[in-house]
Write a protein that binds this DNA or RNA. Structure first.
Lengths: 247, 247
DNA sequence: CGTATCATTGACGTCGGTCAATTCGTGTGG
DNA sequence: CCACACGAATTGACCGACGTCAATGATACG
């Protein structure tokens, strides 16, 4: 497992939480944060390669991603893996309709990662006590649904080139929105070609070939976990529509 | 457009609502249904082929599907269509994170359909007034998310045969759960082979060939909108895992 | 160094797409 | 009742995007 150099965010108090304005806690006003601080179980740092939870687990927690990359995936009996999404900071992980039931996918850290942990059992009642929180959860969930639909469209109807371009540009855009681009405009994306393949229903071999094409055409250059993008305008023929609706 | 013979459900009062126990209104006790009745805009019957809303619309309503089949899809610039899901009775349609924003997919009736209509603008505040309603919405949304993930896995990692078998068995199972199977155990499924193809990222031609195979092997027989299924046990090698988590 | 992971490259094979013709089924109108 | 239209399904010939297999490099780590 390659180790990515960036150090994870060090957890602090809710008042200084870096994702308060974008995460599930947005409904809590400054002077109501004590509710959250009493409720939360604490913060945690995980190393790259660690799992937050696995498909089938009876997970007892919920997670706010403070920093790091997490891959959500499922493995079918044939052994093939389908990556469902890549979670970045601000994502609320582990919520599902049946809070008592087993997880329906796995979540593995791609980088060192820090999360804020909520206890799972009490969460439904907290939602009932604090209506804006439920509202926020349903907002976030439907944003995830939108992302899932985007991915489904990508995998379902687009040829390999466009799929790859879409995935990379989506990630690029999300990092840009967060101000995570580097000074030279490149993006650090800690994925292997295998991740791209498993995300898009392709093979690593073919991904390698397509990436080489795109590189030679000077449109995208993804290598060693860094993405260089020529220009949105130049890429409009690659990506046949407007992606990038949810960050 | 082929017209499907079944007559749509005729709307009645909330107390007699056929989907109360499974839909978004589940949190409302018998004696609180007046809240919903004051809130709802009314019921509506749509003919097969009609659209509930289209991608990009600034829709002003939300819909509870009382009866009928509705296909949710998106069309990309290349002209190809990706079907996201088939909605049956009980489904709550139109909710998304940005209730003021444009719809992110289209919804077209496959059969004559009846829906219960909510006004869109006031819905967020109703959710805030009635915490269990928000909770219910987030439950339903995450069930949709689970379905989207299932579909993504299906399209991403399975060969055509298994995709088709999965889709049909999923539909079969959903109808069975609802008690919609016919006396002989067959299921009425108002899809064309084109729908199947657009749902799975295949072509109608290839779907036709695979259906023929399955028919000759006496495992599935889907023809003229009716599905006959040999037996779950016999099909376990077709469907390489446990589907059927959300109805 | 030896090992492991990741990426690259080439030869070859196939699953599923494209194109086009034909058939089938059903509803419609004379 | 037949002729026709139209969408849906079927079939066959052909093809290409993408997968499989296998060998080789590159890079990092203990």
């Amino acid at each position: 497992m390659r180790v990515w150099p960036r150090l994870p965010y060090i957890p602090t108090a809710c008042a200084a939480c870096p994702i308060r304005s974008v995460g599930v806690c947005r409904p809590f006003a400054e002077d109501r944060l004590d509710i959250v601080e009493r409720f939360k179980s604490g913060d945690r740092i995980l190393r790259a390669g660690a799992h937050l939870y696995r498909d089938g687990d009876n997970c007892t927690e919920l997670y706010n991603v403070l920093d790091g990359w997490i891959v959500l995936y499922r493995i079918v009996e044939s052994g093939r893996r389908q990556i469902l999404d890549f979670a970045l900071n601000g994502r609320f992980l582990g919520y599902q309709a049946d809070l008592g039931g087993p997880m329906t996918h796995s979540a593995e850290c791609l980088t060192d990662t820090s999360v804020c942990v909520f206890p799972r059992r009490a969460f439904a009642s907290l939602m009932n006590e604090i209506p804006p929180l439920s509202l926020r959860v349903s907002e976030l969930t439907s944003m995830e649904l939108l992302r899932a639909h985007d991915q489904l469209v990508n995998v379902g109807v687009r040829p390999a080139r466009a799929r790859i371009a879409h995935l990379l540009l989506d990630l690029y855009h999300r990092l840009k929105e967060r101000g995570f681009l580097e000074d030279n405009g490149e993006a650090e994306i800690p994925l292997t070609q295998n991740h791209i393949a498993d995300s898009l229903g392709l093979t690593n071999v073919y991904v390698s070939q397509v990436l080489k094409q795109l590189r030679e055409e000077k449109r995208l250059d993804f290598r060693n976990g860094r993405l260089w993008v020529s220009d949105y305008e130049t890429l409009t023929d690659l990506i046949d529509f407007d992606l990038l609706r949810v960050v």
